[in-house]
Design a protein around this nucleic acid. Structure first.
Lengths: 173, 173
DNA sequence: CAAAATTAGTTGCCTATGCAACCAAGGTCA
DNA sequence: TGACCTTGGTTGCATAGGCAACTAATTTTG
């Protein structure tokens, strides 16, 4: 096999003449990679320092923002599956970062809120996280920032519809 | 504090006067949610129809694009951990969608490539995926598309540096 | 009001995945 | 050449997370 044929990433040898899909330009892929990198970078801040994971972080932040709410509401606001919320809450409760007060009007649910310790942690973390996000955004041209916001919004909306749409083009599954 | 203080999801009751962080506007969160929705929507296309997951999809696409390469190269190109690649490859191999030819010049590695069946699957999937991405992008103003592209690139670059940067402001861990 | 349906939340189970240890093949250097 | 180091790739282990089944409480309906 001739020398020039191998590239360090790898060169196309038997692929279609023009690849139908370039992964590195493929939007879902790029979004995923970007999101993971950002997420991982951010996690390092709180995971090392406070020993919490993403779900716990989200619960903490949501409670910091709203003060008191049910697990269901937390899930709705933070886009998390109820089991994820349940486990994150259990975790935070065990560490006395949040407290629970059952709703006497509906004993199925309970109102959750930050304990003083939880609030302290939130007050410490939130500004750091905010700064992190600001620094990220700093790297983007001001004009592009708004576009990014709009785009993310549209993509988020659109992907829901498309799922069902394209997945079953003419096959009723 | 005036009326506008209330948000539709839940009402602040004990939170700080002005929440330090609004999760729904927090970039890492938005990226994650968006990426997950898009990813899930896309997965539906191939997971239901071809019974493959994201890692297998990426290996398939990468091989479809480059023709023949080592597992390491696949991982590098598709941003996947080597164990993920290894398992995805094993999976696809078991299903005779890709084949392996050991490199006689270096017996540690092996060249992987699509079998005819794999190529067939790729040729079928790639255009559908492309169309999916196009439809997603259609929802975005043409001008914003370039901005999105640039922004994702910057964010992807930036997040790497920031990780170490902010995580240890002045504490050598 | 009692049976059925719904809802908030938890848990069992199974898959996915990252890390670390490992294996086998190459490479380096005295 | 032979001890050590590096590298491609696989596997054991432990954790994370989704789904479905379950419990307990509430609501609906006949």
């Amino acid at each position: 096999m001739p020398v020039a044929m191998i590239d360090e990433t790898a060169e196309r040898t038997t692929g279609t003449p023009e690849p139908a899909l370039r992964l590195e330009d493929f939007l879902p892929y790029r979004l995923n990679v970007c999101s993971n990198l950002v997420s991982t970078a951010l996690s390092r801040i709180y995971s090392e320092r406070y020993r919490i994971g993403v779900p716990e972080w989200r619960v903490l932040v949501t409670l910091g923002q709203f003060g008191m709410m049910t697990a269901k509401a937390i899930g709705a606001h933070s886009c998390m599956h109820k089991t994820k919320v349940s486990r994150a809450v259990a975790q935070l409760e065990k560490r006395k970062l949040i407290g629970r007060r059952s709703n006497r009007a509906d004993m199925r649910e309970a109102f959750l809120s930050l304990t003083p310790a939880g609030r302290e942690m939130y007050d410490e973390l939130a500004p750091i996280a905010t700064r992190f996000a600001d620094r990220l955004l700093d790297s983007i041209d001001a004009a592009d920032r708004d576009a990014l916001h709009r785009a993310l919004k549209k993509l988020t909306e659109r992907s829901g519809e498309l799922a069902t749409d394209i997945a079953n083009p003419r096959r009723p599954r």
